[in-house]
Amino acid sequence: MKHYTKEELECYRHHEMSVLGRINCSAHLKQCPECAKLLAELDEEDALVAELQESLLAFNQVPAPPAEAATALQRKSS
């Protein structure tokens, strides 16, 4: 049985396969637990990417420090 790669499954779930390719892949997924697992992993990865996006957004919204703040702290500490 020919298994699908992660990249091919990305194409499948993003509707980037030809109609025939999609029908074949769909049929394969119904009888191949290995490929079905790989597809599920891609969904899990979406969750990680969403967390990553949220984290970057939150941290990017933190305003820049006042000028010389870090230097002033260093002076204070030395």
Binding site: E51, L52, E54, S55, L56, A58, F59
Partner: peptide, 12 residues
């Protein structure tokens, strides 16, 4: 929650 975000940002 913030710590988790911090680590993800660092990982990126």
């Amino acid at each position: 929650e913030v710590w988790k975000k911090h680590i993800l940002t660092q990982a990126m």
